[in-house]
């Protein structure tokens, strides 16, 4: 979580300087779901994400320097600079796609789950998406088919209360995303999305049956993005009091102070972890900065048809 937080704070600054390019969506305030879920996954599992994907890719173990280089459009980036912030792929760490099309990776995760069930029994597919994606046809069609075919897929909804600039209540009368699971008989839980330990426990409980022939499952993490929809969004649609209320529930500080309070982590170790994360991000930025852009020939490489 410290790494993701430090990474995205850095990304936010680098958007300001123009070094990180394009449309960028950070997950500051939402790191717990990425970490809590990915912590129960194995190397053989496959992950998909949406447009707010930096945290998921880092939580799977991607090299921060390669992610940063990708965000800068450099050849050393995960995707050679051709994917960018919204389309991160790291096959070596089991991240098959992230997408700029809201909801678009939900069916991909179903297809991969079907393939895994046949080729790597016990492995699972996971897809992260926001609450905005719940209003797409993909979510509903996918919930139906995943339940019908009992696919080993975990759908993780990071419900931050806003679809772009609009509160959830303006888009749907259904308050809890997990309500939709009831119709299809899908195992589902709603958890405090800023409590990484609770998320980890819920994810673990939901994933276990998927490994032994059950499925699918839905995990709703109630959280909040501390920044706007995209970097540069002034987020005038939110009250300052609401932001302050959630700032007090910051998942990173909450985990650290909780672990220190219970004696699982010393204050010195917590500070050392945070410092190490900041050093790793600084090194990643430095490496990405000095990396070259792709050769002109890359423009027409890796396209089929």
């Amino acid at each position: 979580m410290w790494l993701i937080r430090a990474f995205e704070e850095s990304v936010s600054e680098l958007v300001g300087t123009g070094e990180v390019v394009g449309l960028v969506h950070v997950s500051i305030g939402q790191e717990a779901s990425a970490v809590g879920v990915c912590d129960v996954l194995e190397a053989r599992d496959r992950v998909y994400s949406g447009h707010r994907a930096h945290g998921h890719v880092l939580a799977r173990g991607a090299d921060p320097a390669a992610v940063m280089a990708e965000l800068m459009g450099k050849a050393a980036g995960l995707c050679g600079g051709k994917g960018g912030s919204m389309h991160l792929v790291d096959v070596a760490h089991g991240v098959l796609e992230a997408t700029g099309v809201v909801g678009g990776t939900i069916p991909l995760a179903l297809g991969t789950a079907l393939a895994l069930r046949e080729t790597e029994p016990g492995a699972v597919a996971v897809v992260f998406f926001g609450d905005g994606a719940v209003q797409t046809g993909y979510f509903h069609e996918s919930l139906n088919i995943a339940a019908l075919w009992k696919l080993p897929v975990l759908l993780v909804c990071e419900n931050n209360g806003y679809a772009e600039f609009t509160p959830r209540s303006a888009h749907t009368p259904v308050e809890r995303v997990t309500r939709h699971a009831e119709t299809y008989g899908v195992d589902a839980r709603t958890v405090d999305g800023n409590d990484v330990v609770a998320i980890r426990e819920a994810a673990s409980a939901l994933v276990a049956p998927l490994r032994s022939g059950g499925g699918p499952a839905l995990l709703e993490c109630l959280t909040y993005r501390m920044r706007g929809h995209y970097e540069g969004d002034p987020a005038k649609y939110r009250e300052a009091s609401e932001v302050a209320e959630w700032k007090a529930k910051d998942p990173v500080r909450r985990f650290a102070s909780g672990a220190v309070a219970t004696g699982e982590l010393s204050a010195e170790d917590a500070a050392a972890c945070e410092a190490a994360a900041r050093r790793a991000v600084a090194a990643a930025v430095s490496a990405a900065r000095s990396a070259p852009f792709p050769a002109a020939s890359a423009l027409t490489e890796d396209v089929g048809g």
């Binding site: 991909l108 179903l110 993909y138 088919i145 019908l148």
Partner: peptide, 23 residues
């Protein structure tokens, strides 16, 4: 057999292909 959900079915087939099958 699939339900009449063309967009999701195309996505499922794509997700199968990305995971090594030939749908």
């Amino acid at each position: 057999d699939t339900p009449i959900s063309e967009s999701t079915v195309m996505g499922i087939a794509t997700g199968m292909a990305l995971a090594g099958l030939r749908p």
